[in-house]
Structure formats: C-alpha cells, structure tokens
C-alpha cells in the first residue's frame, strides 16, 4: 500500500507542448508567445522557483491563448503576454506553494518509511537531487555568504518566504531584501556555476 502510494505521488513528466506550427497565423499574441516561449519559461522559473512548474504554466498559457476570443485589438502583445503569465501564477500561487511544501514534507516522511531507499525518488533532471559531494559544496557556498545576504537568500529562496515576509523577519525594507538576494545569487553563481555556461 505504502509502495503504491509512493509511485502514485511521483510527478508526471510535463506533457510536451502540443503546438500547431500554423496556429499563429494572423494572431499577433500567439506569434509573440511562440517567439518568446523560452523567455516566459525563464521568467516563470524565477518566480516559481521550479522549472517544472514554469513549463507547466507556460503550457497552460498556451491553452489559454489558443482558447481565447481573437476578435480583440491587442496593443502591446509582449506586455499582455506577461500580464497573462502573472495572472496565471497568481491563480495558482497559493495552491502551488502549498502543494510543493506538502510534496517536500511527504517525500521526507516516505523516505523515512521505506528505510532509506528512496523508491520513487527519480526527479526530473532539473531537480536532480544533489550528490553528497555537490550537496556539501552547496551547503558551504550558502554558509559562507555574507551574513545578511545569506539570511535573505535562505529565508526567501530556500524557505519560501515572500520578500515582504523576509523583510519582516530581518527587520529590513523590501528593497534591501531584494538587494541582498541579488548579491547572494551573484556570489553563489560565481562559486557554483558550471563553467560551460559562463
């Protein structure tokens, strides 16, 4: 029973985009979408903290675009595209945050219950569990950040507090939190980034 539910909880691989190459004919919004799909994924991955969620949302956005009434006049397609993406995230943000937290807690519990053998744990490549050595590198890199940057990064990016919640926990302004998170990201990338993408 336990084993069955472990398997049942494994995230399904996200469906491949089912995109009709001619779909953008005469539709500037759909054309903008097809041209900017990568950027939209980049944008949503930063906001959602997960590539899988971002891919999912971008796919959902496509269905929304394809299903919408094409009669309306579109002033600035790019801004409209991002507004729709932001709204989609808003719709899902609360439920998503909760289910991610639930998944994590669930995985920890399941892990303990199957006696150290993570039966279901074959996450997609972008979420690959860090090897023990890589994990040590990650821990050291975060631990050795300047104190304020380290705390801001940890509260916001690792523990999932919003900028405002992080600001409250640290007694700083929201702008200052943003600055510390940026400094942390820069230092972490310099230290942990793969040479290949430099």
């Amino acid at each position: 029973m336990r084993h069955t539910s472990v398997v049942a909880e494994t995230p399904e691989p996200s469906p491949s985009p089912d995109i009709d190459p001619d779909a953008d004919r005469g539709d500037p919004l759909l054309a903008a979408y097809l041209e900017r799909r990568t950027n939209l994924v980049r944008f949503l991955a930063a906001r959602a903290g997960s590539l899988a969620v971002a891919e999912d949302l971008v796919q959902e956005l496509y269905f929304k675009l394809a299903a919408r009434d094409r009669g309306q006049d579109i002033g600035a397609p790019v801004a409209l595209l991002y507004r729709m993406a932001l709204n989609l995230m808003l719709d899902r943000a609360r439920g998503e945050a909760r289910s991610v937290a639930r998944d994590t807690a669930w995985r920890q519990t399941a892990h303990a219950e199957v006696g150290g053998v993570d039966v279901a744990d074959e996450p997609p490549a972008d979420e690959a569990a860090a090897s023990a050595q890589r994990l040590r590198q990650l821990v050291a890199a975060v631990a050795e950040l300047p104190p304020q940057a380290g705390r801001a990064f940890r509260l916001h990016k690792l523990e999932g507090l919003s900028h405002a919640e992080t600001a409250r926990a640290m007694g700083l302004s929201v702008k200052a939190v943003e600055k510390h998170v940026s400094a942390a990201l820069k230092a972490l990338t310099a230290r942990l980034g793969r040479r290949a993408d430099a």
């Binding site: 980049r42 994990l135 942990l192």
Partner: peptide, 20 residues
C-alpha cells in the same frame, strides 16, 4: 547561469536547510 544555480539550490532546499 544564475537561474540554474538558484533552481539547483531551491530543489535541494530541504536537505540544505537541514545541513545548515
């Protein structure tokens, strides 16, 4: 490059927090 480092750290968040 920055995004992939951020996502890697976020994916490892529960373990990282525990180790930290």
């Amino acid at each position: 490059a920055v995004l992939s480092v951020a996502l890697e750290l976020q994916a490892a968040a529960p373990k990282l927090i525990e180790e930290l």
